[in-house]
Structures are given as structure tokens and as C-alpha cells.
């Protein structure tokens, strides 16, 4: 009996996915997707990283992509961030189809890669200013953006004047997240923003992201294998496993439909069934 329950849960999700595709066209048009991936596949030599990823991210939501190491989270985010070309399938970001509209999409997104580092010989402020100069059209705007970044990072001016090479991992990550958020892009992509951080630094980063999401109403996609973080930050979550999305819903619904006590347990139930 225990074996059949997860299968039933998965079947429910299949139905939900089918329903999504069967939604009448008029209803589909009313829903504005910031990101849409349909059956996206990606191979690296003999390894198939994505075996057919399908997901839709709504405008203004904080969307979580969760899964174990090697599930395809980073590849999916890199495809959305225009850095990697998919082999098959359809990718649309902010109304632009990829990969042919990469230049247009880059103007509208900002991306924090996993383990992104700072320029160690530049100060914290200069790290912010460099990215601000890339995004801004004028020097004045660049300084305004960098100041916004400094505000988001919440670090004192004394700290910002120090070279990034002297920063702790937590401080460096705050600057890295701030430089991603300060551009006020229509879509922010954060790949494991708290990975490798201590509890205090991770909490601080989560607060930065949550405050930003609440105030700016920007669409944010976060990947993580920290289920608690995703539960705390995200409106909806997609579970990715072995290059496929196996479920998409709000964290509370995922927990509810899988009869789990938390998202971690829900994920194990779904993945456990898939592993069969």
C-alpha cells in the first residue's frame, strides 16, 4: 500500500500538467508567463542533462527550482539566463524566444551564478559600480544603481571601501546578491544564493531576497536544494529530478497533496517514486 500512495500522488501531478496544456487558448493568453520552457532538452556529449523540462513562471512570482545535485537546476537556469543553448524544445523569456533573442533578454534579466565570486582586487563598492556601469546608460545612473546595491547589501561604507579579497564569504555573497538585484531587472535568476554559507549569513541573504521581492514585485527564480529556504521564499516550486520536472505547485499544496509534513518529505516521496 505504501508503494502505491506515491504513485497516486504522481498521477495527480500528471493530471495537473495535462490540465495546464489543455487550458483553452483564451484563458492561456490572459496568463502572462515571464518564463516558459516546453520539453527542453540539453546534452553535453554523452550525458543528457535535461530530458524534457517543461515549466512556466508567472509574472511577479518567486519561483523555486529544487532538486538534488546533478538534477539539471543549473543547466535550466543557464538556458534561461541565455548562457547555454538548448538542443530541443521551446524557451521563451519575457516574450522573447531563445536562443535567437539573447541580446534583448540580457537587457531584461540579471543572474547570480552558483558560487559567483567578486573581483578580489576591487573594493565592495567598485564591484557594485562595475555591474552598475554595465547596466546603466550614464555615469550618474551607474552611481545611483551602485548606491541602490549598497543599500540592498546593507553593508557599511567602511566595509564597502575594503577590497573584496578581505571579505568573509557571507559579506561577499551579500555584495554578489545585491549587484544582481540592484539592476531592477524584470527577471532575477539566483542559482543557489545561500549555498556554502553559515546560518546567519544564509538568513541575511534570504531576508534581502524576500524584502526585494516584496517591494519590487520582480519575477525571481531561485534554485536551491535547501527545501526550507524554498518554502520560506517561494510562491511556487518546481521539483526537478534527473533532468525532468516532476511536480510544480505552491509549497503548501505540494506538502498537502503528498500527505507530507514538509517540503523535504514531499520531495522524497515524489523522487522516491520516480527512482523506481
Amino acid at each position: 500500500m505504501e508503494i502505491f500512495i506515491p504513485k497516486l500522488v504522481v498521477a495527480q501531478y500528471y493530471l495537473r500538467v495535462i490540465n495546464l496544456f489543455l487550458t483553452p487558448a483564451c484563458e492561456e493568453q490572459r496568463v502572462k508567463y515571464t518564463v516558459e520552457l516546453r520539453n527542453v532538452k540539453k546534452r553535453f556529449g554523452k550525458v543528457t542533462a535535461l530530458k524534457g523540462v517543461t515549466l512556466k513562471v508567472l509574472e511577479g512570482e518567486v519561483f523555486g527550482l529544487i532538486g538534488p545535485n546533478g538534477a539539471g537546476k543549473t543547466t535550466t537556469l543557464r538556458i534561461i539566463a541565455t548562457l547555454v543553448r538548448h538542443d530541443e524544445g521551446y524557451v521563451n523569456v519575457l516574450g522573447y524566444e531563445l536562443p535567437k533573442n539573447r541580446k534583448e533578454v540580457r537587457k531584461l534579466i540579471s543572474y547570480l551564478p552558483e558560487d559567483a565570486s567578486l573581483y578580489h582586487r576591487l573594493t565592495g563598492w567598485e564591484n557594485l559600480l562595475y555591474f552598475a556601469m554595465i547596466y546603466a546608460e550614464s555615469k550618474e545612473n551607474a552611481h545611483r544603481l551602485a548606491e541602490e546595491g549598497a543599500r540592498i547589501a546593507g553593508l557599511s561604507s567602511n566595509v564597502l571601501r575594503r577590497r573584496a579579497g578581505e571579505y568573509s564569504k557571507g559579506m561577499a555573497r551579500r555584495i554578489a546578491v545585491a549587484r544582481t538585484l540592484m539592476a531592477r531587472s524584470k527577471l532575477v535568476i539566483l542559482d543557489e544564493p545561500t549555498s556554502g554559507l553559515d546560518v546567519f549569513s544564509a538568513v541575511r541573504i534570504r531576508e534581502m531576497i524576500r524584502d526585494f521581492a516584496k517591494n519590487m514585485k520582480t519575477t525571481i527564480i531561485i534554485s536551491s536544494h535547501n527545501m526550507l529556504e524554498v518554502q520560506y521564499l517561494c510562491d511556487r516550486v518546481a521539483l526537478i529530478h534527473e533532468g525532468r520536472i516532476i511536480a510544480t505547485d505552491s509549497p503548501s499544496n505540494l506538502v498537502k497533496y503528498t500527505n507530507a509534513t514538509n517540503l523535504e518529505e514531499a520531495f522524497i516521496k515524489l523522487v522516491g517514486d520516480y527512482s523506481e
Partner: peptide, 13 residues
């Protein structure tokens, strides 16, 4: 190697 390139590549630069 220093993991600073990827973030720049995703910008409109």
C-alpha cells in the same frame, strides 16, 4: 577560474 565571468556574461555587455 575565479568564478567572476559567468555573471558578467549574462549581462547586456
Amino acid at each position: 577560474e575565479r568564478k567572476t565571468f559567468e555573471a558578467v556574461l549574462a549581462t547586456p555587455l
